[in-house]
Design a protein around this nucleic acid. Structure first.
Lengths: 124, 124
DNA sequence: CCTTGACTTAGAGTACACTCTAAGTATTAC
DNA sequence: GTAATACTTAGAGTGTACTCTAAGTCAAGG
């Protein structure tokens, strides 16, 4: 399957502005037809989804750009890419644990508030 | 225990600029001594830590401000505060699950790369 | 007495990641 | 033949959350 930028933007949930912006930044390579119109492929879809996972884990555009650049070069950058991913993973695992703790704190807070309000009503 | 802004900034890991900024924004209330110098208490410490948990879970300054404002008002805002927290919790749980999935994706990617590189060496 | 650390207002600057506009051209679908 | 959708460059604007500077004052400790 192939998609126009309009279709593709709906599928991946990024605006056409953002898709062009990402392309300009070197995050995606997109084919064109005879009229210079972008043709997005399923491969592009997988790649964008991958990028969005990296973005979701807090990777900066700068690092995603580096990763994409290396990807475009070829196999001699495999180790660089792996190093980047492993390094990134460390941070993500830390962030994940921090988020887990903060969620726990939030739950405790909610519990506390529910008791407060319960008490408040019981004293009426 | 009480702390000067210099001591406190080291303890909570926020710059004095940021502490004054948060105060100006209404996120913290801080006592002053006779010379108008800020005196941070352990209560302030607990409050800041609480705020940082909210921040950590992606709450905006705007919402933290609202929460703090309600906190300063008194018991009649308990339900508003609880509603805000519960509403926020929903988002956090979603974010947490998304992060978990993205971390899983990252792990798969790393595995893939490690196999690629393994293959690459084994063909030498 | 002078360094250190605190205080004030008000506003400027930074970084990130978009997000949009202008102003023009080109192609396809009804 | 016109509406919709696409294309270009180049730059301006937005929102968030800081982060810092200027320019001055003030008080305590060695």
């Amino acid at each position: 399957m192939t998609y126009s930028i309009g279709e593709f933007s709906k599928i991946v949930g990024l605006s056409d502005h953002t898709l062009r912006f990402y392309e300009k930044e070197g995050l995606i390579k997109v084919n064109r037809d005879d009229n210079n119109v972008r043709i997005y492929s399923d491969e592009n879809k997988l790649w964008i989804e991958s990028l969005l996972h990296l973005k979701n884990t807090g990777m900066s555009l700068k690092d995603m750009k580096q990763f994409a650049m290396w990807g475009h070069v070829g196999d001699e950058t495999l180790e660089d890419r792996l190093a980047l991913l492993k390094n990134h993973r460390k941070k993500v695992v830390e962030d994940f644990e921090k988020l887990r703790q903060s969620l726990e704190h939030l739950d405790n807070k909610i519990n506390y508030y529910e008791n407060e309000i319960g008490d408040c009503f019981s004293t009426n």
